[in-house]
């Protein structure tokens, strides 16, 4: 059984009739994702890929069982759409919007926590369990990247994920579940909050995190290892080791500020907790080899 999303997860698509929404609905369905309904205000009665469209989330959940909602909604309407899903009791939400205002992101995360729900994103490609199901827009057809297997992956970046995951697959591994938490300063869900699910997942042998400068998410992962919440092997690749201080490197969240967020600090925290940190994407596979073998032969953490 994979985490967050699996074959049996019943997915609602908010913003299903839009260009991105309808295009990726087709792909998610083709890959095997169970999409039960869609929502676009004012478009009730239409169908997208034979999926019925409703005006509101409440109408959709009153008609169909919904486990999760996938949002293809522009950033300025994302807060509204997330709160609408939470209001209808949806507990798993993925939003791919790039450009959600910071204050909206804080409100989204705060309300999700109050509701006991998980909002993944924004500014992400979403969540995928290769060969099973996906909420988001991953090029799952590129087999040298999205190969099913037993490595869990969490990432703050899209293109870099393709790069690093290709290296994991090249070494002979595959992916159990890949969660893109996104590149924003306040992601709805943080790395450490997903670790317990990877810990419990019997289909995941080890986890790779793809992080970068900025924030404290990697340090929180180190803490989870340190306090024994997470005990499987963990390998990290972090972008921005040589980035100058005070410059925002692409992602809104990728900046050293408030004295926090340097890659050196993250490496120090992760390594002292017992994780392995790859200097280059090409080394991630080798490090996985090293710690998975060690785990197997002398039951020692990597």
């Amino acid at each position: 059984m994979s985490i967050f999303i699996e074959r049996s997860t019943k997915v609602l698509i908010q913003g299903i009739t839009g260009k991105e929404g309808s295009y990726w609905t087709k792909h998610m369905k083709e890959m095997g994702t169970q999409i039960v309904a869609g929502v676009t205000p004012g478009k009730a009665g239409q169908q997208v890929e034979s999926i019925p469209v409703f005006n509101t989330v409440r109408q959709a959940v009153n008609t169909y069982d919904v486990d999760a909602s996938m949002l293809f909604v522009p950033p300025r309407f994302t807060k509204d759409a997330v709160l609408e899903a939470l209001d209808s009791g949806v507990k798993k939400i993925v939003t791919v919007a790039d450009g959600i205002p910071l204050h909206d992101a804080i409100q989204i995360r705060q309300e999700a926590k109050k509701a006991g729900a998980y909002v993944v994103g924004g500014n992400t490609s979403g969540v995928i369990s290769p060969g099973k199901a996906m909420m988001g827009f991953f090029p799952y057809w590129i087999k040298r990247v999205y190969k099913p297997g037993r490595i869990g992956i969490m990432t703050r970046s899209g293109s870099l994920t393709n790069e690093v995951t290709a290296m994991v697959v090249k070494t002979g591994y595959g992916v159990s579940t890949l969660i893109g938490v996104g590149g924003d300063p306040v992601p709805g869900t943080r790395f450490a909050e997903m670790l317990p699910f990877y810990q419990a997942d019997e289909e995941t042998d080890a986890v790779v995190i793809i992080g970068e400068l900025g924030g404290t998410m990697e340090e929180e992962v180190a803490e989870a290892i340190q306090n024994g919440t997470f005990t499987k092997p963990l390998v990290a690749f972090l972008g921005g080791r040589t980035a100058p201080k005070g410059k925002r490197m692409g992602h809104a969240g990728a900046i050293v500020s408030g004295g926090k967020g340097s890659v050196e600090d993250k490496i120090k925290a992760l390594e002292s907790a017992g994780a392995l940190v790859a200097k280059k994407p090409s080394l991630v596979g080798q490090l996985l080899n090293r710690c998975i073998k060690e785990e197997r032969f002398d039951d020692k953490r990597c």
Binding site: S157, N162, E163, E212, T242, A243, M249, G250, A254, K280
Partner: peptide, 26 residues
């Protein structure tokens, strides 16, 4: 380059290889 994470990583790799960056552009 394309993608913030990949561009930042390429920026690192150039420095590891002893090069220097003229501009970051996505």
């Amino acid at each position: 380059c394309a993608g913030a994470g990949l561009t930042t990583t390429v920026y690192d790799l150039i420095h590891y290889a002893g090069g220097t960056v003229a501009n970051y552009l996505e």
